[in-house]
């Protein structure tokens, strides 16, 4: 199957936008990715091993969190697993002209 890598994390996959792995489940696919690119792990999981709250895993068009089998869902060679950090924010701006960093 193919794992699509979002732009900010490609630095950890030798700039590859997609990585092909052999796997039977989502968990196996992620494990294969991390075995090949160990530096990727801390960007995906918290130190205590939980998927970071802002990271979304999509199996084709389905949120893995809401699949009946979750990360143990079966995958096919033709499937695509997308790693998608969330996008949110808005309003209540800091004072104009304030340092930005």
């Amino acid at each position: 199957m193919t794992i699509e890598i979002p732009t900010p994390l490609r630095v950890y996959t030798a700039n590859q936008s997609a990585v092909a792995v052999d796997a039977n489940t989502v968990t196996e696919a992620v494990s294969a990715l991390l075995a090949r690119y160990p530096e990727f792990k801390k960007h995906l999981y918290t130190p205590d091993g939980k998927l970071r709250s802002f990271v979304n895993l999509y199996l084709n068009d389905e949120d893995v969190r809401y699949l009946p089998q979750g990360e143990e869902s079966a995958v096919q060679p033709s499937d695509t697993l997308s790693i998608i950090p969330s996008i949110a924010g808005g309003g209540l701006a800091v004072q104009a002209g304030a340092p930005s960093a």
């Binding site: 950090p85 309003g91 701006a93």
Partner: peptide
């Protein structure tokens, strides 16, 4: 204003 907010920063991951 067109300035980032604390929420913008906290939720920025890309």
């Amino acid at each position: 204003p067109a300035q980032w907010s604390p929420t913008d920063f906290a939720e920025a991951h890309w």
